[in-house]
């Protein structure tokens, strides 16, 4: 943002396009990250839109009810609809907040701050992945896989009336949350590499923490996608 404010002062908006300078006041690396995320957003959008199309094809009547599918919580057992997934959402949001803080400390050239907040970010990512692993394991244990449909008891646990959902639900769930989880995993790996670089002072020597900002964008994007995955699978 310093970049932006400085250049705005240096050049009036009208001639930033005249060449010899970056028209958005942004270095190419950050710009590339943004456009890569735009491109990646199209992949996720294609998945989510396919989800919508398939859901409409199957029909609303036999689409499973999220409150029944996702009502488990570790240790506590069943009967807590959406509680666990809300926890996952909060973890991811918080992790995203930590990342913003890391980026801000990076702008202040505060190495210690970056280490602290980036460390929290990575922990948040790992926590999210662990939660997702638990959720997947739980659902697979309950019989929902890529090739067998979701089942649950309509009137709550122990009521006996079994609802059998369409195959498509489980397939879409695992594909899309899996693809999201793959992004989170990549994010954690990249964050860790950047974290080590921060610790070893690579960016201190370079006199900028741009790399933290770039991986930060990626991390927020993962959060952004989760918001829509959350909407598709748990809220609608």
């Amino acid at each position: 943002m310093t970049t932006a404010t400085n250049t705005v002062q240096a050049n009036s908006e009208s001639n930033v396009w005249e060449g010899g300078q970056a028209p958005f006041g942004v270095k190419y690396g950050k710009l590339m990250m943004w456009y890569f995320l735009l491109s990646d957003a199209f992949t996720f959008a294609a998945f989510l839109i396919s989800y919508g199309a398939i859901r409409f094809t199957v029909g609303q009547d036999i689409w499973p009810e999220p409150n029944r599918v996702f009502d488990a919580f570790p240790v506590l057992g069943h009967g807590y609809p959406l509680l666990f997934v809300s926890l996952m959402t909060f973890i991811l949001i918080l992790s995203s907040v930590f990342m913003v803080r890391a980026v801000q400390e990076g702008h202040q050239m505060n190495k210690k701050g970056v280490i602290l907040w980036l460390g929290f970010t990575i922990l948040g990512g790992i926590a999210f992945l662990s939660c997702q692993a638990w959720e997947w394991a739980h659902l697979i244990h309950n019989g929902m896989t890529m090739t067998s449909p979701i089942t649950y008891e309509i009137g709550g646990h122990g009521s006996g009336a079994v609802f059998v959902g369409p195959l498509a639900f489980g397939q879409l769930f695992f594909t899309i949350t899996g693809f999201h989880g793959f992004h989170v995993t990549t994010g954690v790996v990249i964050n860790t590499i950047v974290f080590l670089n921060v610790v070893f002072g690579t960016y201190e020597k370079k006199k900028n923490y741009d790399m933290v900002e770039k991986v930060g964008l990626y991390w927020h994007f993962v959060d952004l996608v989760w918001v829509f995955v959350f909407l598709g699978f748990y809220l609608l």
């Binding site: 735009l38 996720f44 890529m146 195959l167 397939q171 693809f179």
Partner: peptide, 25 residues
């Protein structure tokens, strides 16, 4: 290219799953 190829990738992933994981998208 940047905006259209990713959608193809999504289509391909679903097709690959249909071919290898037994899904039925």
């Amino acid at each position: 290219g940047l905006l259209s190829f990713p959608v193809l990738v999504a289509g391909f992933i679903l097709l690959i799953f249909d071919r290898s994981l037994g899904t039925s998208f």
